[in-house]
């Protein structure tokens, strides 16, 4: 199967089980809402009757933000001018993936993020089990029972992944970046910039390759009904290596699709400047659609890679029979 066919099959598979997307979206939305309420209260107390509220409504207020940066604690300190741009969140995401600086927004936000991660691990088990199910129709009881069944295996895979990412962010990246700083101490600014850019590109490739292997590990664990998460990771690594062009090509294709969708939404959000209630409602709706699309896209990685893997394994079995 070529990667385009895998992508098409994956999209169809995701479509058949589309009910999973709103389920995950709801978790994301309500978890964020838990923070949004105190954030709103704090912000309203700070600016509700101040003149700077007009600046904040039209754009941003450096006068207010400068004081907040110095004195405020809690959630308000995470408010930044970059959020006014639709691209702000994307740049933040990219930075997090490349540096692993997840605690930069405070421990509470990180704690809830980890909670969301755990819930996602649980839901992934249900989702991949449903996708792999031959009947391929959504059933909530089968979804949750599968999620529970695979949970501990998926936790093991995620824990392994986090350990590897930790080594990447805290050991490998600093060593490479410090070495580059040493090698380029006397180089021109342009050379230094491109060298660092290249390093971040390498880090990105490692991050994505690790993610690719962990995706296949989860798929193999479910499809092959493996009992060991680490065996699944080993099989996934082997599969990715033996099907290097197919697996990376498909991952790249999915990533391009994700980037195009993200840029389109970010562009739209940047164009829309909410300064009245109607536009604000539109922006909020577009933003939520963006999150929905992001979750949908994340699940596409599983469905497309599952299709690719299943097809590859079918071919192997056929060959063995022959």
């Amino acid at each position: 199967m070529n990667i385009v066919s895998a992508l098409k099959q994956g999209l169809a598979l995701n479509q058949k089980n589309i009910k999973i997307v709103p389920l995950i979206y709801a978790v994301n939305f309500f978890l964020a809402l838990i923070f949004a309420v105190p954030f709103f209260v704090g912000l309203h107390q700070s600016i509700g009757d101040l003149g700077v509220r007009n600046d904040l409504l039209q754009g941003f207020s450096l006068e207010w933000w400068s004081a907040i940066e110095l004195d405020a604690d809690g959630l308000l300190v995470t408010l930044r001018p970059a959020l006014a741009s639709g691209y702000g969140a994307l740049f933040d995401n990219a930075q997090l993936l490349l540096t692993g600086g997840f605690k930069s927004f405070g421990w509470w936000i990180l704690a809830f993020g980890v909670l969301y991660l755990v819930v996602s691990v649980f839901l992934n088990g249900g989702a991949i089990a449903l996708y792999a199910d031959e009947k391929r129709t959504f059933s909530s009881s089968r979804f949750f029972s599968s999620a529970g069944y695979y949970f501990h295996h998926f936790v093991a895979i995620t824990a392994t992944a986090i350990l590897l990412y930790f080594i990447l962010y805290k050991v490998i990246s600093p060593v490479i970046l410090n070495s580059v700083a040493g090698w380029t101490a006397l180089s021109s600014p342009r050379v230094v910039w491109w060298m660092n850019f290249a390093v971040f590109l390498v880090i990105l490739v490692i991050v994505l390759l690790l993610n690719l292997i962990m995706d296949y590990a989860k798929i193999i664990l479910v499809v092959e009904k493996k009992n060991s998460a680490w065996m699944a990771i080993a099989s996934a690594a082997k599969f990715a290596a033996t099907h290097l062009w197919g697996t990376t090509g498909l991952y790249l294709l999915l990533s391009i699709l994700a980037i195009v969708i993200s840029l389109a939404f970010a562009g739209l959000l940047t164009v829309l400047h909410p300064s009245d209630v109607i536009v604000l409602f539109i922006v909020f709706s577009v933003q939520q659609a963006f999150i929905f699309a992001k979750i949908w896209m994340r699940l596409n990685y599983y469905t497309a890679q599952l299709s690719y893997y299943s097809d590859a394994q079918t071919n192997v079995r056929k060959l063995r029979k022959v």
Partner: peptide
């Protein structure tokens, strides 16, 4: 806007 950013962070 901030809630949207937080949702992205979770993702």
């Amino acid at each position: 806007l901030w809630m949207g950013w937080l949702q992205h962070f979770f993702e």
